[in-house]
Design a binder for these strands. Structure first.
Lengths: 230, 230
DNA sequence: TAAATCTGTCGGCCGTCCCCGAAGCATCGG
DNA sequence: CCGATGCTTCGGGGACGGCCGACAGATTTA
């Protein structure tokens, strides 16, 4: 009757290998990588990567798209990202020493603002969630949900298409534990659309091709006006 | 900077074995089991169980308590239960055929009402969540959170001690996907206290020593008055 | 004190799976 | 049409982990 232990074990097995875990963590940036890139990132032969990717796709964690001689891979959906985030949240924080100036600046940028699959994280992400809460748009006391005023605000003030908020079997708002701030930021459909909107308005832009983002001058002004942030 | 793949993998490894998974699923009933009981449940030698339990405790998923010659084990905290539930929610539903009348009645009872770690689940759990939502006490549209009225209701109407609602680094309300109903029921501190209260008032009682519970005549009347349920 | 019960340690067997390099197939570019 | 690039298949080597049974330690019961 209950969930079968064998099924749970085989699901966990997919993430129970350092190479596969490294691949999934890399894909947490929300983009699609080629098989070769993932192999290089994880530090294994391409043939080895093929086997791992087959298992991850077969297990439903990854989705693939073939284009010519490339095999593009991405997380199957937001729930997979959620799962990996939840697991990561259980791990020891700040255990990795920083070596060198270059890595220090990357770390600092990531800590300040980054994407977490499809929404904003880091100090910026938490600041947005806090500003929404302070304005009565987000309820973090009784759980984690947008208030009625919050839903109105998304479309009226933040300029998000109401049609884009249609729930696709995914909660409108969800708390996602930020692993640098150790406090929740906004995830779910609302978090994704808000992040999308900020990128599209160029209030925030990606730093190189990493998950880190930075706030532009326009973004600084916009965020101050929209949410009273810094 | 980011989460280390090795750490994620070793966490997943804890659940990536059928025997360990069976043990964790058994412990989802929220009670403490002895090492011998878990060995029998998982169908392995007691010596084998010892090794598995050492790993689970060492990895922080289980907590142990020694009393005389017994070793009692339970899930370390609610977040572990949450994690296992989330993983289970990804598994195929209703894949296990039911064999025999005895198992059929057990299945039916579990489907109707049961505990899910420390809160109510099954048709009863979902009905409670729906009743709360219909009365404006719970917001499921904007996410999953108790409304202001909901928090008041818990103490004023449901008779829950306000002190027991102090948040212990755990959300007051959280949605937990019900694997028989495929819809969320109420978890988090509020879900746990409500379940506790119902058991204490004997509105619901355990069936034997299983996770299944049944509503008593007093509970039927109480639930109708309190929430207008069936 | 002696027997019964519960749990932990040790040694050894066996299967699984993670890895690689070499060779084979598809695709793209000239 | 030919080489370069990206991916996959295959065979084999090696390590790890799960399993057990037998024995030992601790605790309760007779």
């Amino acid at each position: 009757m209950s969930t079968d232990a064998a099924d749970l074990a085989s699901l966990a097995t997919l993430l129970a290998d350092e190479t596969r875990a490294a691949m999934c963590l890399a894909l947490l940036d929300g983009r699609a990588w080629t098989a070769g890139e993932l192999a290089a990132h994880a530090g294994v032969a391409r043939s080895t990567a093929t086997e791992h990717l087959d298992r991850l796709v077969g297990g439903g964690l990854l989705a693939e798209e073939r284009q010519g001689r490339h095999r593009y891979l991405r997380l199957a959906d937001a729930s997979v990202a959620h799962l990996i985030e939840d697991l990561s949240a259980r791990l020891e924080p700040a255990r990795t020493p920083v070596r060198g100036l270059r890595q220090a600046t990357v770390s600092a940028a990531m800590k300040r603002a980054r994407t977490c699959y499809d929404h904003l994280a880091g100090e910026l992400g938490v600041a947005v969630a806090d500003a929404l809460t302070a304005r009565g748009l987000l309820d973090q006391r009784g759980g984690f949900a947008l208030t009625g005023a919050g839903v109105d605000w998304l479309t009226a003030e933040a300029g998000i298409d109401p049609a884009a908020l249609r729930q696709q079997r995914r909660p409108l708002a969800r708390g996602c534990l930020d692993w640098t701030e150790r406090r929740p930021h906004l995830a779910g459909v609302a978090g994704a659309r808000l992040c999308e909107r900020f990128l599209e308005q160029r209030w925030v832009v990606r730093i190189g091709s990493s998950r880190a983002v930075k706030v532009t001058p326009a973004g600084r002004a916009g965020l101050r006006e929209l949410l009273g942030i810094d």
